[in-house]
Amino acid sequence: MPAGDREKRENHPEEWYNRLMKTGAARQLDLESQNPTPESFLEEIQAIINSGTLRGAREVAERGLALYPDHPELQRLHYALRPFEVRSRPDLKGFYLDPRPNYEWLKKNSAAYAGKWVALDRGELVLASDDFKEAYDALQDREPGGTLIHHILAF
């Protein structure tokens, strides 16, 4: 079975959401009975995404492409909304070091670095800066498995 096929097909915990989904479906049926333009489908996709989900958005693009197969934006969206892949990385097994020393550093020292980006390597501060890029660059020569970049928010 291809990796993409292993994605979640059913979403039982969200069944309580059906009422909203049904409203959306009704809107889609209306759309198709009103001689929709490509923009109608694009608006529908926009509305779905604005509601905080991607569910159904690709199907709308698909239905739009059935009527307007050459429309570039519908084609782009249909591709951009393709199933999302998840891959295990056995090649990176053992690559990462125990992050606890970096966490300990944050626990003990965050108060003194509020508002800063800190670049840490195995529990030691490499650089603290207002600038993310400086913190990032400071770790370039370090083994990535033991490093951490964190922005300490100033409340």
Binding site: V86, R87, S88, K93, P99
Partner: peptide
């Protein structure tokens, strides 16, 4: 990243 086992790449 994984401390134990395999890291996971997620789109």
């Amino acid at each position: 990243p994984a401390d134990e086992g395999e890291p996971l790449d997620v789109e």
